Simulated assay, not measured.
Amino acid sequence: MTRRHPQEFTVPVAGGDLAVLHWPADDPTAPTVLALHGITANGLAWGEVAEQLAGRVTLVAPDLRGRAASRSVAAPYGLARHADDAAAVLDHLGLADAVVAGHSMGAWVAALTAVRHPGRVRRVVLVDGAVSFPLPEGVTEDDALAAVLGPALSRLGQEFPSREAYRDFWRAHPAFGEDLWTARLDAHLQRDLVGHEPELRSSCVAEAVHIDGGQVLLDAEAAGAIRKLPCPAALLWAERGLLDQPQGMYDADRLTAAALDPATVTTVAAPGTNHYTVLLGERGARTVADLILAEPPGATRI
């Protein structure tokens, strides 16, 4: 399969210029899909999905403020701010509306974008995110973030002597296997680094991660967005968790208990994937691409 390389441009937003990656469609008249990454990721997290889309749509994926090439975009942070930044990207591209996809934290942002900017989002594709559950009694926000994100969070306070050392860090992550490792995955992870050897570190602004993570766990507006969607949604859930544990963030019973409106939200299982591989692995990315391209009942085919 031919590797597709993104272009890059910036979009002025409150507090700075948002970096946006752009995989153009083979047909310049093809529609555009806006894709939003997870809490400590960056726009290149969508590289494998872009490969699977194979030029059938234009895919644009910003580095959300406080990450990668958008790390200098100023606070305030928060999921509503990211949603407003997403709408600014649509404005910059001259798009009246678009399909919006989001992974993990980006799924909450995608749902919020649809709710905060009605009419701008034609459909949302939510990848292992957007459904919130109350924290267990006695569990603090910081404890929950550390337990859920594990190594992805702990790396924010670390320095790495080389890019190879950073690769080794991720190769040791329980959700990442050697069969997952591709040039696209490596590019995504390396985009996160700032500084110079032997003092490399993650680009993620700790304040942004803490605020955004707290809102994923506790913010009522973010939690309620999936129940207020003004457009159709597909929710793809991974079988396994963030650390590749057998219990994923969601399962059929949890989603049934969440009582989502079946007229609005269609849930789809992704067997054999974990929270990361559902987006970054070839099998998961192919399913995400299929959902992006899918034609919901009564909709115009994209």
Rank of each mutant, 00 (worst) to 15 (best):
A96G: 13
C204I: 06
N274A: 02
T58K: 04
R122V: 07
R286E: 10
D168W: 02
A206P: 05
L189T: 04
H37W: 09
H22E: 14
V20Q: 05
D63E: 10
L53F: 08
V13R: 03
G94A: 11
A30G: 14
E197R: 04
L79P: 00
V57W: 01
E48T: 15
V109Q: 07
A299R: 06
E137V: 15
L180W: 09
P6A: 13
A41N: 10
P232G: 10
G298I: 09
R3N: 08
A270N: 06
D26P: 01
R171W: 09
L145E: 05
L280P: 00
I292N: 00
V33D: 03
V124T: 15
G102I: 01
L185W: 06
E48C: 06
G129T: 01
L185H: 03
R3K: 07
A252P: 00
Q247K: 14
A252E: 07
A146C: 03
D27W: 01
R71L: 05
A68Y: 08
H92K: 10
V209T: 07
T2V: 12
V89W: 03
D212Q: 10
C204Y: 04
V20K: 05
R81I: 13
R155S: 14
V148W: 14
Q158N: 13
L236N: 05
L64I: 12
G248C: 11
A270F: 10
E199Q: 11
A130Y: 06
G177E: 09
L135M: 14
P76R: 06
A69I: 02
Q245Y: 01
W23A: 12
A175K: 11
F160C: 06
L279E: 00
E207A: 15
D17P: 00
T273R: 13
L21Y: 12
A263T: 15
E197Y: 07
L217W: 13
I302W: 10
G106A: 13
G157N: 09
A54M: 06
V268D: 05
E199V: 10
R167A: 14
L90M: 13
W46M: 00
H173T: 05
V99H: 05
A19M: 01
T182F: 02
T287P: 00
W23P: 02
A152Y: 14
H37E: 08
H196A: 13
E51Q: 15
